[in-house]
Amino acid sequence: MAISKAEVVKVAHLARLAIPEDHLEGYTHIISDILDLVAQMNAVNTDGVLPLSNPLDATQLLRADEVTETNQRELYQSDAPRVEEGLYLVPKVIE
């Protein structure tokens, strides 16, 4: 196995995914299979090759720092699950 159950638990936490215990075995297997598939990259010598993050090797465009959007809070919050007086509600984080 390319990855252990414990590592899957750790990564799932980093990804904020609550994988239930009874799905863990299956995940570990399939993630291992995928890592085995991508392991063929290791056979290639890439010393001195520059990583390609944008196919056109383009750099980030910049624009003037000015306001271009108007406030549309009510519209945007119409899609939110829990809102009160213009604020998003989440469970209590400070006891």
Partner: peptide, 14 residues
């Protein structure tokens, strides 16, 4: 080992 390696291989493919 993964992301950076894949991006280098992406350069070779390009």
């Amino acid at each position: 080992a993964y992301y950076l390696k894949a991006q280098k291989i992406r350069r070779l493919i390009k």
